[in-house]
């Protein structure tokens, strides 16, 4: 198939970027979206120009490296799918495709489609863990956890930190990401000890990093490749209300 791509090109964080158009033909429907970009880059290199920088690693939808706005949708049109797992059979011959980086002040563009998501790491570093050192822990089966609770926690823990929630949110809010970790740990017995401090610390880091607030559009939920529910945001809100009035 033939495609026309409009891709955001930006040399580095200091310069401003612009959309640039590229024509592609002979795109196979069995290609993944990133393989299509690989082919484009080979052509660009052949012309002696600089290829499009984009992040990717595992290409099986789990590392969270890849991510771009494809026709205005984070990770493109297919639900529950990362960009690397999106295949060209989802597009039609003659389609025009706009490709942009995640846009958020807390995710500054590094180059082309590559953004800096280290703000997510700082949110985790401020409380997204259980405070235990290695060794000296009880036997794994000493803490029984009901299957439903375990599954609920697991579904939150499925977050891959790709940032699609932020990218898709009209407010560039990181609530889905932050709440997924808060709920994962907060719903397990192991996470109870610091549950209130955790929510206070992670929410203040999230706010200080410059993410927007939640206005319940639920675009995050639609964009999340792991199907993380906004239910977890509600849980974070409950914990935050409680923590606001109880934390010492």
């Amino acid at each position: 198939m033939k495609l026309k791509l409009h891709i955001w090109r930006q040399k580095n964080a200091a310069t401003s970027g612009k959309m640039t158009s590229y024509e592609m033909d002979n795109v196979s429907p069995d290609m993944s979206f990133l393989e299509m970009l690989d082919v484009l880059n080979e052509k660009i290199i052949e012309r002696g120009e600089e290829p499009v920088a984009f992040e990717h690693d595992c290409r099986e939808g789990i590392c969270g490296s890849c991510g771009m706005m494809i026709n205005g949708m984070a990770h493109g049109p297919e639900k529950l799918t990362t960009t690397c797992q999106l295949h060209m059979r989802k597009f039609n011959d003659g389609d025009e495709i706009t490709i942009e980086p995640w846009r958020a002040e807390a995710f500054p563009v590094i180059k082309d489609l590559v953004v800096d998501r280290s703000s997510f790491d700082r949110i985790i570093a401020s409380g997204g863990y259980v405070n235990v050192n290695t060794g000296g822990v009880p036997d794994a089966n000493a803490i029984p956890i009901g299957k439903k609770v375990a599954d609920y926690a697991f579904n939150a823990a499925a977050c891959i930190g790709c940032g699609a929630c932020v990218a898709a949110c009209p407010n560039a809010s990181a609530m889905l990401f932050t709440s997924a970790k808060i709920s994962h740990l907060g719903s397990l017995p192991q996470g109870q000890v610091e549950r209130m401090d955790r929510v206070i610390n992670m929410v203040s880091t999230m706010d200080n990093e410059g993410f927007g607030g939640c206005t319940n559009h639920l675009e995050c939920e639609a964009a999340c490749p792991k199907g993380i529910s906004a239910e977890y945001i509600a849980q974070m809100n409950r914990d935050m209300m409680k923590a606001t009035f109880t934390v010492r």
Binding site: W8, T98, R103, E105, F211, G213, T215, L218, E221
Partner: peptide, 28 residues
């Protein structure tokens, strides 16, 4: 909140395709 949210994304997308949000939610 609006000021905060606006400053959270200063460069807007060339193309956005709402999925879950509604006309009402976007025009609050």
């Amino acid at each position: 909140l609006k000021q905060r949210n606006a400053s959270a994304r200063k460069v807007s997308y060339a193309n956005t395709q709402p999925v879950n949000s509604t006309f009402a939610s976007r025009t609050m």
